[in-house]
Each structure stands twice: as C-alpha cells, then as structure tokens.
Design a binder for these strands. Structure first.
Length: 256
DNA sequence: ATGCCCGGAACGTCCGGA
C-alpha cells in the first residue's frame, strides 16, 4: 500500500501535474494540501477519471486539504478539534483500507514573533492532543502532510538564512519533537537516517531548486502498527523539476 | 539589506506563502 503526501500549491494551477504524478507514482492514498479552493471547485471528475475517490475539505483562496484514495475513504473528522473558532481548512481525517489517514497542513507561522506564530504553536498543541488520542486508542494511523517545521539543522539549506523563520524556531521544533516522541515513527528519517539532503520544499525564488537550497518540512508519521509494516519512503524530487511544478515535492511511503 | 517567484482574487495590485 502506497501512501503519499503532496502540497500542490493550488489544485487549479496544478491539476495537469497532479494527474501526471498520480499516473506515474500510483499511490493508493494521496493526502493533498493547499488546494486553495472551495469543495465545489475541486476537480472531482478529473480525479475520478484517474481512478481516485476524493474527500475534500476546502476553503476559498487559501489552505484546503484533501484525501484521494483508490478505495473509498470513510470520513472521520473534518477540521482539527480544540478550537471551535478556527475556520482554516487544514485537517482532514479518514479511514482507508483499515488505516486512519490524516491530511495535515500546519500553519506557516511567519512572521514570528506575532499572532500567526502563536496560532501555529496553538495548532501544534491541538495536533499533539489529537495524535495522543489516536495513540491511546491504538488506531493504526498515518499523519501525513506539510508540517511547516524543519526538525533539524540538516533539514535546512542554510540556518543563517532561516534563523528568524517560524519553520526552524526552537518552539516549533520542540512541539514537533513532543509529537514524535509520543511514539510516532517519522518515515523518511527512519528509512534514510544519514541522508543530508532529504529536502521536500524548494522556494520558487532565488534559484533555490537548481542550487538545491531546500527544506524538509513535509512529513509522514506512522503509528507503531503501521511502522512495523514500513517498506520504503521516498521524496519524488523529479516532480519538483517539471514545468509549472509545485514548490513542494510529493513524499510517499510503501507499507506491507 | 531587500527582493527575487508563484497562486488566487480580481482587474490593480495585494496577500500569503516559506
């Protein structure tokens, strides 16, 4: 079973690339982030023609997550619990093939300090709580998405350039560590413990892609039962090199 | 030291992104 995460940076602008990638990578489940459209505007017909069901939690203009799956997904949760006033579409949870799947688009948090960074840390705390509930229930689960946290210095092309960025702040990293230390396996690092260039994002600006000035911010976290089934984990770098590419590369894992 | 490049909303630029 192949499970992928892909921040598409706008489903309308990215649909041709997404369809090409689905045909090439053939994931069984694909968690999408930053679809940037309301539910009614999601290209359901095109995705169904490609062989996928679509579960969509959208929003006008910004954010928005979805779960594509070859087998129908059963929706469990739309939105992250813990703040009824939060209207940003960043979390969608569903069961597919007896695995709980969460598509996650964590807040960026810039500029920091400030209210956006406070929102990021509060969102991380809510995610910790939700993940703890899944752990307590021993639900086989995959938490996949754009976490907007680069966990270690080696996950950043230049710490000098990023020193003031919300993605690398000690508070952001500490929250991500607390989440992982509940007992989740970070799939990419688990399979590639010594790889210094496991980037998943390259800014459009300043020639970041050609000079490989990237960040590792897209993560796939596995509950113990799923981690025991892990076969491989991969960053689909080729997708980032296409014309009209997203600034994120897809990441996928294979489980037995 | 700052902006670079994008997508979306909307039709002139501005916001958000990371």
């Amino acid at each position: 079973m192949r499970i992928a995460t892909f921040n598409v940076n706008g489903i309308a602008a990215r649909l041709p690339r997404l369809l090409e990638w689905l045909a090439a990578a053939r994931p069984d489940v694909a968690c999408l982030q930053e679809i940037k459209c309301v539910d009614e505007k999601f290209p359901v017909k095109e995705v169904e023609a490609a062989g996928y069901h679509a579960l969509v939690h959208g929003q006008k203009g910004f954010n928005g997550v979805a779960i594509l799956s070859r087998e129908p997904a059963v929706e469990v949760r739309r939105g992250l619990p813990g703040d009824d006033t939060d209207e940003q579409a960043r979390y969608l949870e569903a069961d597919v093939n007896n695995v709980r799947i969460a598509s996650i688009y964590l807040p960026n948090g810039n500029p920091q300090p400030g209210p956006k960074f406070d929102y990021k840390l509060a969102w991380l705390a809510r995610l910790e709580a939700r993940a703890a509930a899944l752990k307590a229930a021993e639900t086989p689960a995959v938490l996949a998405g754009d976490y907007n946290v680069a966990p270690e210095d080696r996950d950043v092309f230049s710490m000098a350039a990023m020193a003031d960025d919300a993605l690398v702040q000690p508070a952001s990293r500490a929250a991500f560590r607390r989440l992982v230390h509940q007992g989740w396996t970070e799939a990419l690092r688990s399979v590639h413990p010594a790889d210094e260039h496991l980037y998943t994002f390259w800014d459009y600006q300043a020639g970041c892609w050609p000079r490989n000035a990237g960040l590792r911010i897209d993560h796939v976290l596995l509950s113990p039962a799923v981690a025991d089934r892990l076969l491989s984990a991969h960053v689909d770098r080729a997708a980032r090199g296409e014309d009209k590419a997203s600034d994120h590369a897809p990441v996928w894992i294979d489980i037995a």
